[in-house]
């Protein structure tokens, strides 16, 4: 966590451009008329999100985004699309549903009103960072208690191990649910 202040001091260029990229790809994914184009732009969205997570020093999240989004989601969506028929579209974008857009804008405005009270990104005064009982305790005690250097993995597998067991069972149950939905008895 060395050198956090200089990064905070000049977040502007890289952070702003990444955010513009992510918002643009998200909008195009939502509005694209052709489903294949939406899937492709969604892949591009994951590229931007992985870079953003990396910049915010969350490499585990970035690695998950990279592996799941680039490797798995795109492929599974394409396989599903291969089972459907194609409709030729005249226009590139969907027509915006004004009531839905209004509701989404209202929600966005409500969330944006709370942004003034959120601490700055990377601030050392943020409660999530400065809290001595949670974040700082894990950062200082993890290696002594588990012998593992990666705090994220230690929290996932040891301190919150029962939650992770639940998540693993959920993944397993998702596979079984897919079998049931598709009326199959075997995977392969």
């Amino acid at each position: 966590m060395t050198g956090l202040e200089p990064v905070v001091a000049q977040v502007t260029a890289i952070e702003a451009s990444l955010l513009v990229f992510v918002v643009l790809t998200a909008l195009v994914t939502a509005l694209a008329r052709d489903v294949l184009a939406a899937v492709i732009v969604f892949g591009a969205y994951s590229l931007g999100m992985a870079a953003l997570y990396t910049f915010y020093r969350a490499p585990d999240v970035a690695l998950t985004e990279a592996a799941i989004s680039a490797g798995v989601t795109t492929v599974l969506l394409l396989l599903t699309l291969a089972k459907t028929t194609r409709i030729d579209h005249e226009t590139v974008f969907e027509e915006v549903n004004l009531p839905a857009a209004g509701a989404a804008g209202f929600l966005f405005a409500g969330l944006a009103l709370t942004m003034g009270d959120v601490p700055a990104v990377g601030s050392r005064e943020a409660p999530v960072w400065s809290n001595p009982d949670v974040t700082q305790w894990y950062l200082t005690e993890t290696y002594a208690q588990t012998g593992v250097e990666n705090t994220v993995m230690a929290v996932l597998a040891a301190f919150r191990g029962f939650d992770t067991f639940g998540e693993a069972v959920v993944v397993f149950a998702a596979g079984i649910a897919a079998l049931i939905v598709l009326h199959r008895e075997v995977f392969a």
């Binding site: 798995v72 599903t80 089972k83 998702a174 596979g175 598709l182 995977f187």
Partner: peptide, 10 residues
């Protein structure tokens, strides 16, 4: 295992 299974399933 589950991801490979989903792939073959889809």
């Amino acid at each position: 295992g589950v991801l490979m299974g989903l792939f073959f399933l889809l």
